[in-house]
Design a protein around this nucleic acid. Sequence first.
DNA 1: TGCAAAACTGTTATGTTATAACAGGATTGT
DNA 2: ACAATCCTGTTATAACATAACAGTTTTGCA
Lengths: 165, 165
Amino acid sequence: MPTPQVASCAFSDEHNHQRCIRTALATAERLCADRRCRLTPVRKRVLELVWQSHTPLGAYQILAQLGDEGFNSAPPTVYRALEFLQEQGLVHRIASLNAFTGCCAPDRQHHGYFLICRQCGRAHELEGQPLSQALREQAARQGFMVEAETVELTGLCPHCREPLA
Amino acid sequence: MPTPQVASCAFSDEHNHQRCIRTALATAERLCADRRCRLTPVRKRVLELVWQSHTPLGAYQILAQLGDEGFNSAPPTVYRALEFLQEQGLVHRIASLNAFTGCCAPDRQHHGYFLICRQCGRAHELEGQPLSQALREQAARQGFMVEAETVELTGLCPHCREPLA
DNA sequence: TGCAAAACTGTTATGTTATAACAGGATTGT
DNA sequence: ACAATCCTGTTATAACATAACAGTTTTGCA
């Protein structure tokens, strides 16, 4: 079993998140080098900002931070960077939040399935290749060929459930 | 097995869609009467417009049509009607399209899982209580309690696949 | 019936998210 | 060195959604 490049960490507070970020950036550098595509300064910084946030980040939140740092800060700048990062599988867009989050395993082939906590706002990738298989089979039964999957489950994460238990 | 109130019809052209619409409206009338809530003229008309469309309808498309008919046509009018209809389970919102579509089985307890054709733009509800069960179990394994589910599969519907085969 | 509370609608304004279109600059391959 | 490609800057605008407050209709109940 291959070691994941970036530990999934969204629901666990007690870890060195700086390390997560560094690892994520290093992985991105490597992937882009392999693929002969360019992780330019804006793109890299956007990826870093996305990773730095506990919770999925809206495009305009990213934009504001870039602006503070002297980067150009018109919307297309951010949307272009995000588009690139999505194409490379480095970030996922969460449709139900209109927000973006770092991908925990950009080199592993997968779809972004998410668990989204309505309390703390964190989003965590849901494990489960078999689920995708099941979804696709059910769709096929209705004659439908699936190309992309949006699966976003909202509820309470372990931490936020605790006080209620 | 109870007969569904409204045949699911999004991917089948050859049927009397007027009948679907009438049935959907009649079901809505009945449900609202049972629940002692008010299917007012705007709400009813919005539901009808949503049903009349082949493809999921954006709020501003609905708004434009209401305007043409002399209804008040500021955004809140439509969003309020849609909110009501969603609460009553009469329409679903499709997050990945920012659009709304009629619910095929408003009296049956279910979540809106969708198959969305990227070619013709139609959306079809995906059957499958077992899938929900599987998703919830997988989430539970990660300590997460699911409250709401967004499942939207994009791809090609039977009709649009045909020419390719 | 009459009145207060609740539900619904009208209206204005504004907030939020995303893209079009075109110009200019950097990088790459040959 | 230079042409092609890719990337970024900039302005404008499109598309989606809600806040806040005023007025009207309906409902429940004394």
